[in-house]
């Protein structure tokens, strides 16, 4: 029951931001880049719901477009992680105890030794800052995460008798991985995907805060925060709203992940 509640609340929160992001393609209260110096530092009100920034730009419009950046970066980074990590994890589990497994595992350890931000720094140092590089930096870090989750889930499945039965039916390791292993680790991947999605949003915010993410004029939550920092003394609203947007989105995704875990985890279900 608790799983269902957090799934709905979390899904609702995260879903709301996704809808706002999608809506921003067709409608925002003001054009997000439109400056109006006369209307700078407006407090939240009827005209500008969340106020305006130092150039008179509408904060609500920037937040909506910023959601687009955050969500896009996080989704693509999760996609990279799944596309790269899941096959590696399946392969490692199918060749347990061989050098393939060993290389995949140690490779993962090595990526983990690089803090994701350090990878981003390295990439930007060479290629220059951009949203694409932020995606790459976050996505590379996701690959070993998904590889590990997939491998761990797959290893416990490989010991089960239905895998033996499939081998008796003449099926090879690749086919068994696709037909029997993948569908049964899908739940784990969905839960992990939600977690990595929320971590991706946090990471993107951090990168763009230090100027290594999306570049102007593309709005992003992290850079809105960076811009507001020097103005914090007399316009705290500029620092509050983007931060709240990040917290609510991440909170929603985390709650959703917890809810999914409770609902999908067969161990928890069997115990109930």
């Amino acid at each position: 029951m608790r799983g269902r509640a957090s799934l709905f609340i979390g899904g609702g929160l995260a879903g709301a931001f996704v809808i706002l992001a999608l809506l921003s393609f067709v409608w925002t209260p003001y054009p997000y880049a439109a400056m109006d110096i006369a209307a700078k530092f407006r407090p939240p009100g009827a005209l500008h719901w969340l106020g305006t920034d130092q150039f008179g730009r509408d904060v609500a419009a920037q937040l909506m477009v910023g959601a687009r950046t955050s969500i896009a970066v996080a989704i693509v980074a999760v996609g990279i992680g799944i596309a790269g990590g899941v096959p590696l994890g399946l392969w490692a589990a199918a060749s347990r105890g061989t050098w393939v497994d060993e290389v995949i595992q140690r490779g993962g350890d090595l990526v983990f030794a690089f803090p994701s931000l350090v990878i981003a720094i390295l990439i930007t140092a060479v290629f220059g800052p951009s949203a694409l590089n932020a995606i790459l930096a976050i996505g590379i870090f996701n690959i070993p995460v998904f590889a590990r989750v997939t491998r761990a889930g797959a290893l416990s499945l490989w010991t089960l008798d239905y895998i033996r039965a499939a081998r008796l039916a003449g099926k090879g390791r690749a086919r068994i991985s696709l037909e029997h292993i993948l569908p049964n680790v899908a739940n784990l991947l969905i839960v992990q995907g939600t977690i990595q999605f929320s971590l991706g949003i946090l990471a993107e915010a951090g990168l763009s805060y230090v100027g290594l993410g999306a570049q102007p004029p593309t709005p992003s939550w992290g850079r809105m925060l960076a811009d507001s920092q020097t103005l914090m003394g007399f316009a705290p609203g500029l620092a509050i709203f983007p931060g709240m947007a990040i917290v609510l989105t991440v909170l929603g995704l985390n709650l959703m992940g917890d809810g999914l875990r409770d609902l999908l985890d067969p161990r928890l279900r069997r115990r109930a």
């Binding site: 089960l160 008798d161 029997h180």
Partner: peptide
Amino acid sequence: QAVFQDPYGSFNPR
């Protein structure tokens, strides 16, 4: 062909 011990682990639940 074969029949195994564990009636719970012998079948893909999906």
